[in-house]
């Protein structure tokens, strides 16, 4: 969704058309309208600020209780005993995200290269809509599919119950494919066609052209894609909660149950109160800051890329 490349950030389409005679009334009306539009545009900024302030406001008391250090680095999350240390949840998120990227990123980049360099137009007409529709499948449907299909398979493979990092990573991997594939394809497409031809002209095979010329040329775009895919994996909730097993313990193996930041919020939110609920808002504000940080990173990289080329 967040696509730093497809957009033309240049001047407005009709800039410079201000050289016109108009009545004072028209002028006032135009000025008023412009400000209304501006107000609408600023809504996005206001929305982000509102989310940050409100979630932050509700989560802020974790600074006092349990205290920032005990919150961030505490090794135990147990509502019954009033322990709200998020380290196990953060590591859980880290584990499933890495797992999802290891499985999903190569698949997605492969799919993108396939789409932009190999597939015939006919095949592309099938594969590309499939990728886009994969992005539209609701996460609770993925979670349901994971619960009834992937989990039993993971149970066979790991000898456990199937709830845990393996199932969660597999489901997340499929879910991040559209994000990474679409953005990678955009990046590959924006590589100047000339160097492709040059490479082929020098006798390079398709594969040599892809990995020696195209992938390096689209490098930053691909990194952006992976970062945004990562953001999706970190923030994904419903699919994870249905297959992770939700045990707030440190990583014990692919087959052992695990809880993530997002899954713990869903499991607890229906009954949490007081400090417990505050801690959940604390988790939410951390998620918010992570996703905002990743967006900032992508924007910085894109700017770097734009400057270089």
């Amino acid at each position: 969704m967040t696509d730093p490349h497809g957009r033309d950030e240049a001047t407005p389409v009709s800039a410079g058309s201000g050289l016109k005679m108009m009545s004072r009334a028209t002028y006032l009306k135009e000025a008023l309208l412009k400000n209304v539009f501006l107000l609408c545009a600023v809504m996005a900024v206001a929305g982000v600020a509102l989310i940050f302030l409100f979630v932050g406001y509700r989560g802020w008391p974790v600074i006092q209780n349990p205290g920032l250090g005990a919150f961030l680095f505490g090794a135990e999350w147990s509502a019954t005993y009033g322990k709200f240390g998020i380290a196990p949840l953060v590591t859980g998120t880290l584990v499933v995200t890495i797992g999802a990227l290891l499985l999903g990123a190569p698949l997605a980049i492969g799919t993108a290269v396939f789409l932009s360099e190999i597939a015939t137009p006919g095949i592309r007409r099938i594969v590309r809509p499939a990728v886009e529709m994969l992005a539209g499948v609701p996460s609770v449907v993925f979670g349901f599919f994971g619960l009834v299909i992937i989990r039993p398979i993971a149970a066979e493979m790991t000898g456990g119950m199937g709830f845990g990092a393996l199932s969660a990573s597999v489901i997340l991997a499929v879910m991040i494919v559209p994000t990474i594939a679409t953005l990678t394809e955009d990046a590959l497409r924006s590589v100047v066609p000339g160097i492709r031809e040059a490479s082929y002209a020098m006798g390079a095979t398709t594969w040599q052209t892809i990995y020696k010329v195209l992938l390096p040329a689209a490098k930053i775009g691909i990194i952006d894609a992976i970062i945004l895919g990562m953001g999706r994996a970190i923030g994904e909730t419903m699919a994870v909660v249905m297959v992770a097993g939700n045990a707030p313990q440190f990583f014990k193996g692919l087959g052992a149950p695990i809880a993530t930041v997002t899954s713990q919020i869903v499991i607890d939110m229906s009954y949490a109160s007081g400090d417990h609920r505050t801690a959940l808002f604390g988790l939410a504000i951390i998620l918010f800051m992570i996703s905002m940080g990743l967006v900032a990173l992508v924007r910085a990289l894109s700017r770097l890329n734009a400057k270089r080329s």
Binding site: A44, V48, S139, G235
Partner: peptide, 12 residues
């Protein structure tokens, strides 16, 4: 802000 809104996790 728009990019951020687009990537804020839905649980948040």
């Amino acid at each position: 802000a728009a990019d951020t809104l687009a990537s804020v996790p839905s649980i948040v």
